[in-house]
Design a protein around this nucleic acid. Sequence first.
DNA 1: AATTTTACTTGCAAAACGAAAGTAAAATTA
DNA 2: TAATTTTACTTTCGTTTTGCAAGTAAAATT
Lengths: 136, 136
Amino acid sequence: MDYKFRSNCPISSVLDIIGDKWSLLILRDMMFAGKKTFGEFSSSSEKIATNILTDRLQTLEQTGLITKGKLPDNKKTNIYKLTEKGIDFLPVMTEVMLWSNKHLNEHVSEENQKVAAMIQKDKEAFIKVMRSRLAD
Amino acid sequence: MDYKFRSNCPISSVLDIIGDKWSLLILRDMMFAGKKTFGEFSSSSEKIATNILTDRLQTLEQTGLITKGKLPDNKKTNIYKLTEKGIDFLPVMTEVMLWSNKHLNEHVSEENQKVAAMIQKDKEAFIKVMRSRLAD
DNA sequence: AATTTTACTTGCAAAACGAAAGTAAAATTA
DNA sequence: TAATTTTACTTTCGTTTTGCAAGTAAAATT
């Protein structure tokens, strides 16, 4: 099987998103922690600055990975959701999680190691379950 | 199947690497373009600044994803290689490539689209082939 | 009506970035 | 062997980004 790229592969085009740690953290929290609001993102243990969080949410929205909306009875709180394009990023984040679990495992709880082992066994099943959770 | 994380998943620990676009470009060029030297990395179309390239190569070495060596008969040119830890990052870069190909395809050559379709059909086979290339 | 919450904005010092020029060791060329 | 070129950086400095901390206005709660 010959995998040969004749021109630059398009990875560089996505680097404004995945080459930014705060954007990745937001996507992680949306995908794996079910977070939806500015306050929830702000409360992550990594302590993102509020001006940076604002900036990254705007960038993710402008590049079509998330949308910003409101609940019908609440004009104040923004609700952020992943778009289809954003949900399609799940395999990337899943592989990042698995890589981290394997290579940075001195920082990983035993509980998370077990979950990662289950995911490793059947990535497709995991992604299917997560997709259906996020599609709500 | 219940995938439930009881504590923070370890993604944030890896963000110094994958949350940096220049590091990702270097890893891409090593994995998919077979690049090994400072000059080759420097010649990528994204035009990384030489002081930044130096900095990122040092960071990747210090975090154990690449090694820096020389050829036996050449004391001048540095040869960079992926470590096992670095090669394990292949699935992440593969998913990034597939995501880019799907969502940024107006920038993607027809040739690369065909290659991406082949990869999508059998990711495991692709990763196996690439691993054996890189393990040399 | 008063207070709290939410999602920001602002000011500013520090850090990072990146263009461009320079440098020294090592290789190549004449 | 001397001159030139190549390689992998380092340095300078202006610009941009980051991030802390305080402030703000609209909306919700008390």
